[in-house]
């Protein structure tokens, strides 16, 4: 008796959210799955034709897509690695100060709060090859000017550095918060055992925040894999396609050129890749929840 009313309450509480999500996500997903098998061109005057896997075949033969895919994977790996590593280092550093932690964590958070559009534009001003501040400073030392955003050797890394600049504070904040939860007693015990700073970090801090590190890594992988705004404003994928990303590829084909069918195929592939990257996490998380939830 109690159980039934309980289930009713559960449905009442959870169904509005699920209803909204279902309408907004399942239909679109079914659509792109279907579109990806057709030659749907949005401006076409005739109805789309079913072409099975032609879009997928064309996609994997397109060297520009493969390049965008490679860039995106490489960018994601490098950016996330440095963001998490630096975030961890800064969290340890900030935590080692007796005073001013609050002020420090507030000001360091600023880059993460800015809209990516603004971030890209500020850096464009600073990186300019003509009167940009960074090249002016280099000039004082007799160096440069470096054409940061248009030189094939630097453009990828310039965008990488901007991303690291913006999101290291994000990793810092989550890891710092996690460190707040480590019982002080563990450090004291370690220190009695004669552990130095490094040993304290290695045997107390790290094991305690390891799960958080994985979590931050996953969050950043998900977001970095979508990289679009910075590239679209700063390099348009160039030079020599070295900064092209998958989202940008889909945007060009789908939104600019209206090739809905082809862009849908690319979306499906992108979705599968990110699912593959996050599969371990999903499986683990889902199992744990199932156990707890049932």
């Amino acid at each position: 008796m109690k159980k039934k009313s309980n289930a009713l309450y559960a449905y009442m509480m959870s169904s509005p959210a699920m209803l909204v999500l279902t309408v907004l996500s399942i239909f679109p997903l079914l659509f792109i799955l279907w579109y990806s098998l057709t030659d749907y061109y949005y401006l076409s005057t005739r109805p789309p034709r079913f072409i099975l896997f032609d879009n997928y075949a064309k996609l994997f033969q397109d060297r520009y897509f493969m390049q965008a895919l490679g860039n995106t994977l490489r960018f994601t790996a490098l950016a996330v690695f440095f963001e998490v590593l630096l975030g961890l280092a800064v969290a340890v550093l900030v935590k080692s100060f007796k005073r001013g932690q609050e002020a420090l964590r507030t000001v360091t958070l600023l880059p993460t709060l800015l809209p990516p559009v603004t971030v890209a534009l500020i850096w464009q001003i600073m990186l300019s090859n003509n009167y940009g501040l960074i090249n002016n400073l280099l000039g004082l030392f007799g160096l440069g000017p470096v054409n940061w955003l248009m030189d094939v050797n630097t453009a990828f890394y310039a965008i990488l550095v901007i991303d690291i600049w913006q999101y290291t504070p994000f990793a810092f904040l989550l890891l710092y918060a996690a460190m707040q939860g480590i019982p002080q007693g563990q450090y004291e015990a370690a220190s009695i055992d004669g552990a130095g700073r490094w040993a304290q970090f290695r045997y107390v801090t790290l094991p305690n925040v390891l799960r958080n590190v994985l979590m931050v890594t996953l969050l950043r992988v998900i977001d970095t894999f979508r990289l679009f705004d910075k590239v679209n404003i700063l390099t348009k994928g160039g030079p020599a396609n070295t900064t092209a990303t998958i989202t940008q590829y889909i945007y060009h084909n789908g939104v600019n050129m209206f090739k809905v069918g082809f862009a849908s195929a690319a979306s499906v592939v992108m979705t599968l890749i990110i699912l593959f990257l996050a599969a371990g996490y999903i499986r683990q998380n889902f199992k744990a929840r199932e156990k707890a939830g049932r």
Partner: peptide, 27 residues
């Protein structure tokens, strides 16, 4: 709270956090 769709709901919510937004945009 136990009900049939719970497992599916959990999975779906998790999935939505992960999927790329551009995939939803056009449809």
């Amino acid at each position: 709270f136990r009900f049939k769709l719970k497992g599916a709901m959990l999975f779906w919510v998790l999935l939505l956090r992960i999927l790329p937004p551009i995939a939803f945009a056009l449809p």
